[in-house]
Nucleic acid binder design. Structure first.
Lengths: 334, 334
DNA sequence: TTGTAGGCGTTATCAT
DNA sequence: ATGATAACGCCTACAA
């Protein structure tokens, strides 16, 4: 059977399409009796307004775009999947739909050019800033998620504070030679975590030693490589990893050197990836709140769509230390 | 600046909108000189057809829906994120867009009711069959992904064959008391993997012992629970896990009992989750080809949209054994 | 080769 | 309270 239209309902009910439209939309007065009749018929026919016709006249699609960098999203080690479903759930509560797209460069996605979305969630810190500015100039409502920059609304994790806490935790346990590793530092989130690490050292009167910092490579082996490089030139008693996959991968490098965790080297990660439960020993890490991030980002975006001319707002979400067994639980002997 | 319309280009070029439409769409003859002029102007104005207007008249949205069960997708331990990005990339190659939605029950998603998609990818084996049939009756082109049933087109992994291979691998290594664990057997994929396990035993003349089969619970601890139950009543020398997270979680239970892997118990997983690299020892597992699955599903769906009246086709993708260190590499001593 | 006109399904502005 | 009617932007006969 075909999708019913307003016209079909109108004929069935013996009224005009205008009346049917009013009855169903609730805008404009309709006699209560005919309204009920129309509603029953519409229900029976399984009517729902055609989205194309609606958005053509209403000038909105009730679609939100979820944009992510193609490389980032292809990486298996990302928590954006969970973020995505949380966003979709949140959008659905508000009668919006989610359009998912990846971007590879700074050219304007067809999603935008063809007017397929009313607003945008730009996810991750690797989307080209030039693209972000182009979008802003189009006056398209948008919110950065897990990323931030001046002049654009954003919702993100407190990376600096989180890494500070993680490092302070290790210091509290008695560690003095604490290393920092990342797949790469060419990434805003990782830079911020590095910054938090440095600030924690400073706040506790420990010297910063560049020899205790190592980068690896992008990919699942990043932490393994970084940790290998580090252990060739230094003997840290603990290491802060820029994220959990890096930490897990580093743990393999540590074990490969015959060192025990946490007795000889403590490890702390970041993200509370499900992975963290399965490492041996289970990984102490900083939990980030993806569902909160999703809800706040959606709320902000919808607000921005209602009322576009607002100063940019930046929403920073704190992290939480999850203590497992990779750092040891009591101060180490010096 | 506003989005340009055909009319704007027409005025600029001094022709009618019909001519512009023809020039841009390529359908219908247009003088080569004016065509070039129109193309240049359109290019300069950054024109792209308005999607709502187009789909209203063309009766298609150029949107494909990616549907997944809400619970399934919220679980962090799923590889559908990777599948999603692969699908999006494939769709984009064909000028289609991806609409992502989760379903919670068998009520018709608004995506469908409001005509927001031309076709559907139904992902995972936990979508309600009643919903699938309703969609079929609407004559909406659709393909099941990582799932299959008679009468509906599908693209899926060879779970039976994969589990057969995994089990045969263990048998080849000399194992005779081989267990099977899963978070749950109330899942088609896991049932099929169980079936593959049984067939391998049978094919090699080993008895099937129900005592060597254990279920756990849904969630990250599923494998831990299942393995715990199993070890209380039996002494397997190896275990086939229904997927990698289950295997990783089971490894923790095995270690908690003081047993060594692979010396005392061999473990093989399924999926080749990135997780498999980080377990200790790294996990031997069956690789599934998500990107292939995505490409084949998209190709099939687009074909189905062109030519709807075709008999259903079922595309089964074989898996590949990835040998790491969790099973040992040489036959065990009996 | 080009333009005119009608229509896709919906909403909104007028009359009545 | 209800019904014509005119958009919305695009495509496509049909006519010129």
């Amino acid at each position: 059977m075909k999708r019913p239209t307003l016209k079909a309902i109108a004929e069935q009910a013996g009224v005009s399409v205008a009346t049917v439209s009013r009855a169903l939309s609730g805008r404009g007065r309709v006699d209560e009796a005919t309204r009920q009749r129309i509603l029953r018929i519409a229900e029976a026919m399984g009517y729902a307004p055609d989205m194309a016709a609606r958005s053509l006249v209403l000038r909105r699609t009730e679609n939100i775009g979820f944009l992510i960098h193609a490389l980032q999203s292809l990486s298996p080690h990302t928590f954006y999947g969970e973020l995505l479903t949380a966003v979709e759930r949140e959008l659905r509560r508000h009668r919006y739909h989610l359009q998912f797209a990846t971007v590879e460069d700074d050219s304007l996605p067809t999603l935008i050019k063809e007017n397929r979305v009313d607003g945008l969630l730009l996810v991750g810190c690797d989307l080209p800033p030039s693209l972000i500015w182009t979008l802003k100039e189009r006056r398209l409502p948008l919110v950065l998620v897990d990323n931030h920059m001046p002049g654009v609304d954003s919702v993100f994790t407190d990376n600096v504070g989180g890494a500070f806490q993680a490092t302070a935790h290790l210091i509290r346990l008695g560690h003095r030679r604490i290393a920092f590793i990342a797949e790469t530092l060419a990434n805003l989130s990782f830079q911020e975590r590095f910054e938090g690490y440095r600030r924690a050292l400073e706040a506790h009167g420990l010297p910063f030693d560049p020899e205790l910092v190592a980068e690896g490579e992008r990919g699942v082996e990043g932490g393994f490589i970084a940790m290998g490089r580090l252990l060739e030139r230094a003997q840290p008693t603990a290491v802060v990893a820029a994220n959990d996959p890096t930490a897990a991968s580093a743990m393999r490098a540590i074990r490969a050197r015959g060192l025990r965790i946490p007795e000889e080297i403590g490890v702390v990660g970041f993200d509370d990836d499900p992975l963290a439960l399965h490492t041996d020993p289970p990984l102490t890490t900083m939990r980030v709140f993806r569902a909160r991030m999703a809800a706040l980002a959606v709320a902000r975006l919808l607000d921005l769509m209602r009322n576009p001319e607002q100063p940019a707002v930046h929403i920073c979400i704190e992290t939480q230390l999850i203590v497992r067994q990779s750092c040891g639980s009591s101060p180490i002997p010096s």
